[in-house]
């Protein structure tokens, strides 16, 4: 029996399942009790999960493929507008929305991927920034697709299949479900030849070429994957808030997502989740209880900014490394206690 438990706890998804159950529990507490979990907390966790999805894509791009992008937030926005338009105009199940957005993401991701083969490093950052600026211009310029500066409101909640119409509370489970599926997908990518090819490419392009790895293919693929993740996050954003406005996907969101990935310190979903929850949930749940942060909603960005600098200057590896080192220390202490020896 204990052996069985041990085996289960070693399964790579074990931690994620526990997390998912915990998050389900939180929402159930919110829905069926009076005030143990507040609306703010429920909303904050839903938003953190949405940002986690976008950040996981960025994590694949940065952590696996060694590329970088400053356009994540703009792609979240694009996904949101496409979803809003589909949800308003057509009565289609949720997966059709995802499918449509994915197709657009593949096209855009491919374009940036091809561009990325011609320009490197700093050039690429500036190019992605320019790309994001173009999209932001599209968002705020008055037109029917984005609704201009005031955005789109009154988007209906999505429906799952034929009968299941979601509402303000149940859309949380949709977000959680999509996040969980994408966690599994991310793990599969990391452990696949594709993931290793991207790693090889980020380590050295000469090495990758010599090993028969087509660098163009994997650069394009990395951008396509991260764009899909970002745009799916946008779909969920609109699904849960029922509105889309251009202020939601500014450059600061891109930077915060970047900070979350850097703070997490790894392309693995565990790292990205730690980073995102540390940056977004902490801000939305904890800091908002202080009057100072209520009056100055932007103040929490100081932490994201400072964390980026500290991690690059003093602690490469971020939270992932921190947790690993803590675990080593605990194992050492436990072993030391068992053998009755002192720590020194």
């Amino acid at each position: 029996m204990t052996n069985n438990l041990k085996q289960i706890s070693k399964h790579p998804l074990f931690g994620y399942v526990i997390l998912a159950l915990g998050l389900i529990g939180l929402q159930l507490l919110f829905m069926f009790t009076d005030g143990i979990v507040t609306l703010t907390v429920s909303r904050a966790i839903a938003m953190s999960m949405i940002y986690t999805i976008a950040a996981m894509g960025l994590g694949i791009l940065m952590g696996l493929a060694g590329l970088a992008s400053l356009g994540t937030a703009a792609f979240v926005g694009l996904g949101a507008y496409i979803a809003a338009n589909i949800l308003i105009s057509f009565h289609v199940p949720f997966f059709v929305v995802i499918l449509a957005v994915t197709i657009v993401a593949i096209v855009i991701g491919s374009i940036i991927g091809f561009i990325s083969l011609r320009v490197r490093g700093l050039h690429l950052l500036v190019i992605t920034l320019a790309f994001a600026t173009i999209l932001n211009e599209l968002f705020i310029t008055p037109n029917n697709f984005t609704g201009g500066p005031s955005g789109i409101t009154n988007v209906p909640f999505p429906e799952l299949g034929m009968f299941l119409q979601l509402d303000r509370e149940t859309v949380y489970f949709l977000i959680l479900g999509v996040m969980f599926l994408l966690i599994m997908l991310t793990l599969n990518i990391i452990n696949s030849p594709t993931g290793r090819a991207m790693l090889a490419m980020s380590s050295s392009e000469s090495l990758a070429k010599a090993m028969g790895i087509n660098v163009l293919k994997y650069r394009v693929l990395a951008f396509v994957i991260s764009t899909i993740y970002a745009m799916i996050a946008g779909v969920l954003f609109v699904s849960s808030l029922t509105a889309a406005s251009p202020a939601s996907w500014n450059f600061m969101l891109s930077l915060n997502l970047l900070a979350a990935v850097i703070l997490g310190g790894s392309a693995k979903p565990s790292g990205v989740i730690m980073g995102c929850f540390a940056i977004f949930t902490l801000d939305l749940v904890v800091l908002r209880n202080f009057a100072f942060f209520v009056q100055n909603p932007s103040a929490s960005m100081v932490f994201s900014g400072a964390l980026i600098i500290i991690i690059y200057a003093k602690f490469p590896g971020g939270l992932t490394k921190l947790v690993q080192e803590a675990r080593h220390l605990i194992i050492k202490i436990v072993k030391g206690a068992k053998h009755g020896t002192s720590l020194e």
């Binding site: 600061m252 930077l255 994201s304 900014g305 600098i309 200057a313």
Partner: peptide
């Protein structure tokens, strides 16, 4: 470059304060 990106977050947080 990442440090300058971090600086953007810090400085833009301080301006409204």
């Amino acid at each position: 470059v990442m440090v300058t990106l971090g600086l953007i977050l810090i400085i833009s947080a301080f301006i409204p304060i």
